[in-house]
Amino acid sequence: MFLSRLLDPVKTAAREAGAELWRLYQSGDFQQQQKADLSPVTSADLAANRIIINHLSELTPNIPIISEESHLVPLAQRQDWPRYWLIDPMDGTQEFVARSGDFAVSVALVEYGWPALGVIYWPKEDIMYYASRGNGAFKQQRNLINRMKVNHHQAGDTLKIAISRRQPLQPIVDLLHSTEHVEYIALGSCSLKSCLVAEGKADCYMRLGPTGEWDTGAVHVIVEEAGGKILDSEFTALSYNQRDTLANPDFMVMGQASIPWQQLVKSRPTQRNLTA
């Protein structure tokens, strides 16, 4: 009941933040800077961040918030939090700047170390992906709502792999035991590629390179409720709120559980990206 009561207000917050991102995207009225890790941040990220934090602070004043665009509370102060909000006000800032439209708002609630509620809003397509633990995953486009399930992949079917528009393909190819019967689907935004797996349009998404826990929090519950998994490059579960930097290891978003993933994708030692 607690999660159910939160879902609609969180969707509203994500939609309002997305509307502001879309307004700034269309007008071009934003400023761009570089963060310490050389990744881009814009005034649009910060505007969306304020909108979401204002909504969540009013909705649940006693639940703390972690955001990519806010000061990170030291681990010693947050490691015992029973629950907290985990947000990325704009996942896909590079796509925003590059004018592809492939950027999204991401909001998750983490309970006792595991994502319990997730909302992803894609302003360009007016698509909302959302899930709460035990209640299924859904895609809403305007007034049409469909329950999501990962693709029913059968032996011999083409394996559809979501890839980044802006990263080289070869490192992904090198992770595959075979490149026969493989199709690559390019899209921006880490969360949107993960949602491709959740809605069955891709079978897998392999992420190499820096990400933070805010990049996976919301999609983690969405993918799992759709029947998939998110695992690191050694096929072990991701963890939340256990590191100083909240940096993720390389990870894989995998669809149908019956696919022999370890026969298709090479395992390799997990590398923590400490600057994410």
Score class of each variant (00 low, 15 high):
Tyr184Asn: 04
Arg99Asp: 10
Ser27Leu: 09
Arg50Pro: 07
Asp157Arg: 14
Phe103Ser: 13
Gly101Met: 05
Asn143Thr: 03
Arg147Met: 02
Pro40Asn: 09
Arg243Trp: 03
Leu24Tyr: 15
Gln34Trp: 02
Ala17Ser: 07
Arg83Met: 09
Lys201Pro: 02
Glu69Phe: 08
Pro171Ser: 14
Asp174Ser: 05
Thr245Leu: 00
Leu117Trp: 04
Gly136Thr: 03
Glu68Cys: 09
Glu225Val: 00
Cys190Ser: 04
Ile145Thr: 14
Leu238Ala: 11
Phe251Arg: 15
Ser106Asn: 10
Val119Glu: 13
Pro61Phe: 00
Pro82Ala: 03
Lys139Trp: 03
Lys11Phe: 10
Gln170His: 04
Arg15Gln: 10
Asp80Leu: 00
Arg165Gly: 04
Trp122Met: 11
Gly212Glu: 01
Glu68Met: 13
Ser194Gln: 14
Ser258Tyr: 12
Leu6Thr: 03
Asp203Cys: 06
Cys195Tyr: 09
Phe103His: 07
Val97Ile: 13
Gly212Ile: 05
Pro168Gln: 05
Gln33Tyr: 14
Glu125Leu: 15
Phe103Ala: 10
Ile145Lys: 11
Leu169Tyr: 05
Ala108Phe: 01
Phe96Ile: 14
Gln242Lys: 08
Leu3Asp: 01
Asn151Thr: 08
Val105Asp: 11
Met90Cys: 10
Ala116Asp: 07
Asp88Ala: 09
Pro40His: 10
Asn248His: 06
Pro260Leu: 15
Ala247Arg: 02
Asp232Met: 09
Ala17Cys: 14
Glu111Leu: 07
Val182Cys: 08
Ile51Gly: 06
Leu75His: 01
Tyr25His: 14
Trp81Met: 00
Ser100Ala: 07
Val223Thr: 11
Val97Gln: 10
Gln94Asp: 15
Arg243Val: 04
Arg165Thr: 15
Val265Pro: 01
Leu169Phe: 05
Ala13Gly: 15
Lys201Trp: 01
Leu7Pro: 08
Arg272Ser: 07
Ala137Val: 01
Glu183Cys: 08
Asn143Val: 06
Trp22Val: 04
Glu183Gln: 09
Phe96His: 09
Met128Leu: 13
Tyr25Ala: 07
